[in-house]
Design a binder for these strands. Structure first.
Ligand code: SF4
Ligand code: SF4
Lengths: 140, 140
DNA sequence: ATCTTAGAAGATATAAAAAGTCTTTTAGGG
DNA sequence: CCCTAAAAGACTTTTTATATCTTCTAAGAT
């Protein structure tokens, strides 16, 4: 239960790798995919999503590729996960009040709200900077 | 992300209802299904699973049906959820150490372990007695 | 200008899981 | 022996996940 999809896992691996690279160094998608062992075409789709919302910046053409969208310290794991997996909702009724007609009287409802809150809280406290291994100075 | 399946939701609704009934009163599956608004055939499958592990007791034939397997205070929401949804694992690496070859050096790994721990902790603290609305004295 | 490089966008394909149904069998009463 | 109700397992349908492919667009190199 509650399992992250491959997409989510790949997304995190990819952007964490990117966050560990210097911001002035444009990374080829193929290089990122190889480094984090993810199917390149799949990672491309994921990074397109990231690009749209500014989590990464993309450059086309020769010398193109990706860099991180902003300071890794300002990007939380929560943001990354929700960007590709959608909002964290342990059950439908956690989407919004009234989503389940039973929620007003349901004794289980508050439990899911609590789960949602706790999980979001954990993921929000972790930034890409925390996650980026110090590979900044590694060879290309 | 992290969404409970219908099966899980139905399972909880069903067993919570059962927990709210007096233990000496055998409940028809069809009645339970109607009360919690779940497809009867689907709930049947779920209760078969519960029966195997003793969460509910089943009786066949005339006057048959289901009762709760043991004191609702002794059954946690965690147990119920894991019975039908499997273990709570926010990511593969939370299944067991070594499941992901990267886990030893992975900076994200501990985050998922933490998520898993917190969620399990929340669900473990909630018993079926807490969840059972006081419908014990309602008409059949 | 045009060629090459590399990402964007969208369609498509495959596979797996979820959701639900149906049929046959077994057990327990009347 | 007949009726009731659950057990067991096969089966169907739908949805989601996973992945790839093709065409298009932007940017630098020649
Ligand atoms: S837990 Fe309660 S409120 Fe939430 S979906 Fe289930 S019935 Fe509805
Ligand atoms: S978070 Fe790290 S250890 Fe867990 S599955 Fe992903 S790479 Fe493996």
């Amino acid at each position: 239960m509650m399992e992250l999809t491959r997409k989510g896992e790949y997304a995190i691996r990819g952007i964490v790798y990117l966050a560990s690279r210097p911001m002035d160094q444009v990374c080829l998608l193929s290089d990122i995919a190889a480094a984090v062992e993810v199917p390149p075409t799949f990672l491309a789709k994921i990074f397109q999503q990231f690009s749209k919302i500014g989590l990464v910046k993309s450059y086309r053409g020769t010398g193109g590729g990706f860099i991180i969208g902003r300071d890794p310290e300002k990007i939380t794991l929560l943001e990354v996960v929700e960007a590709v997996e959608g909002p964290i909702v342990p059950n439908r009724c956690a989407i919004r009040e009234g989503e389940c007609p039973r929620d007003a009287s349901c004794t289980i409802h508050p439990v899911w709200l609590n789960v949602q809150k706790q999980v979001r809280s954990i993921l929000k406290k972790v930034t890409l900077r925390d996650l980026a291994a110090n590979t900044t100075s590694l060879p290309t």
